Every structure is written in C-alpha cells, then in structure tokens.
Amino acid sequence: MCSPEHFAVEYAINPWMDVTAPVDAELAVKQWDRLRETLVGLGHEVHLLAPEPGLPDMVYAANGAFVVDGTAYGARFKHQQRAAEAAVHRTFYDSPDWRFIAPNETNEGEGDFAYLPEAHGGLILAGYGFRTELPAHAEAQEALGRPVVSLRLVDPRFYHLDVALASIDDGNIVYYPGAFSAATQKVLAQLFPDAIVADDDDALAFGLNLVSDGANVVLNSEATRLAGRLKAAGYTPVPVELAELKKGGGSVKCCIAELRH
C-alpha cells in the first residue's frame, strides 16, 4: 500500500475524476489509515511504499504490478500522468524475495488482472478495453506460466477489471455483468456458475473493488446490498469508508497490491 499523502485529482483520466471537485487530503489519509488498520486487524502484513511528490495516484498501489508465486509482472501505464509510478514499484520488487519481469506491453497490474489458484487448476482473469492492451495478456501468460482468460470491458465507468470483478476465494468470483461484453458475460457464466452477481447500485458504489482473504471481504461501505449477498453466501463483509479516494476512481482494491509468494 501507499499513503495518499500527495493524493489529489489534478487531471481526468477516467470518468470518475472531476478536477473541479475538492479533495480533502487530510480525510483521504485518515480513511486510508483505517483501511490499513483493518487489514492488519484481520491478521495481514502490510508493506508500505513511500509516496512520491508529483504522483498523486500512487495510492492506487494495485496498478503497479501483478504477482503470482513470487514472480512480479511489472506495469506499463497507458497514461503519461502515471507512467513514473512503474519504476517506484519495480524498485520494491528488486530484492531476493521476488522475480521481476519487466513488461513490453501496456498493462496496469492488478487493475486488470485477477488470479484464482484453484479455479480450473489456476487461472488468470484479464481485462482489456480501456487501459491494459490485449497483447499484455499473452505476455502475462508467458511471464507467469498460468492460463489467461481475456475479458472485454465495454463500459468506460468500469475502466479496470478490478472495479467490475473480484476474486472472493481461491476459486470463485463476484462481478457486475453490465461492465462486460455479451460474449464475455457468457464466458464468465460458464467458468463461474456459482459466482455472486452484483447489481448496478453495488457496482456504481465501487463495491466490486474489494479484497478478500477467502473468509473476510473488505469492501466499500456504500455497497450495502453486496455486503448482504456476501454474508448470505457465508463470507464476512468488512465495510470501510473511502469516499475521498473514490474521487480518483478507486476504492479498496485499488489501494492494495496483493503479494503472492
């Protein structure tokens, strides 16, 4: 994770960003701190990246890489405003603990990749249509040695996979069908017949932008109906308030890069 110490909406590269809407930087830090404390309270270890001046979107740490079995496939951002973030993340993975693979193709890390180790023997779901380019899916497959299923995003409000779909345990997902093409919806229904399906209100509240450890699901507090669905399915919803960070087009998952050894 990376503190939103320098967070601001200084440009608009997704439909949620409004440069005329004020951001309460102090409140953003407080809300982010609460998210970090929630993860620690659930027993997870949190590593911190130092925020860099001039990179207001660094708080969305999920976009910096995609990690499977100790291998980090690095990011290459679509928009110039975020391009310098990639090097900061690469520095983190430049250690004996990780094997870093630099990308040649445009991709935005876990923003557009999700991993399910027990789904069909280990499966990567990969989004495209707005940020990550389709050739990056093949590059990720070669880098990580896991089959990749390409999922086409068609609604610009759901510009990353992680605002439309999330893994909730090692073999199942929750998703919003309206974010995807008709053909992709058919693929998801075939692969995940037991998936939890979110409605418009859940999706627009950034409810799909969540993290789960297979038991506890940390999600935006505005997604109340989705929280009810998750609870009915046997998970424990853990709501957090991230209204300030929503102004940049992200929520819980955007703030968290998952480190899979």
Rank of each mutant, 00 (worst) to 15 (best):
R36S: 03
G121M: 04
V88M: 07
L161F: 06
V67P: 01
F66E: 00
G171P: 04
N220Q: 12
G250E: 01
M17A: 08
V9M: 13
V19E: 14
F158K: 09
P239D: 03
A21C: 08
T236G: 08
G74E: 10
A138V: 15
I101K: 14
T184R: 14
P147V: 15
F7Y: 15
C255R: 07
P177L: 02
R152K: 14
D162S: 08
A136T: 11
Y60L: 05
T184E: 11
T106V: 15
T71S: 10
A189N: 03
G248I: 00
E45T: 14
A189Y: 02
S3I: 15
V40I: 11
A75Q: 04
S167N: 09
N216W: 01
P53C: 01
R131T: 11
L55T: 05
R146I: 10
R260I: 12
Y60G: 04
R34E: 13
V149A: 08
P15I: 00
V23E: 06
G178F: 01
Y73K: 10
D199H: 07
G249R: 02
A136W: 15
V29I: 12
R157Y: 12
N104F: 01
D202H: 05
G64M: 03
L230R: 05
R76P: 06
M58P: 01
A50L: 02
G111P: 05
R76S: 09
A232N: 07
V211S: 14
D162P: 04
K231F: 10
A183N: 08
A28D: 01
V154T: 14
G178C: 01
P177W: 01
H44K: 06
R36P: 00
D94N: 09
F92L: 04
A86F: 00
V197T: 09
I196K: 07
M58G: 04
H47W: 08
L226D: 03
L210M: 03
G234C: 06
P96K: 09
G111C: 05
D202M: 06
W32S: 05
A138N: 08
Y176T: 10
D112Q: 00
G145M: 07
N107S: 13
N63S: 09
D155G: 03
T184A: 15
T91A: 15
A179I: 15
P193W: 08
Y175M: 03
A164F: 06
V46K: 04
N107R: 13
H261D: 15
T91N: 14
L134Q: 15
A195E: 02
E258I: 00
V217N: 08
E85Q: 06
E133F: 10
E37N: 13
G43A: 00
G228F: 06
A72S: 09
P51L: 00
R36A: 07
I13K: 10
G64K: 00
L226K: 06
V197R: 12
D170N: 11
A182S: 12
H79T: 11
R146Q: 09
R225C: 10
G145Q: 09
V240S: 08
V40K: 12
D170V: 15
L134C: 12
D94H: 09
R36H: 02
W32P: 02
A257S: 07
H79C: 08
A227W: 11
M1A: 07
R34N: 13
L48D: 09
A21F: 05
D97K: 15
L188P: 09
E37V: 13
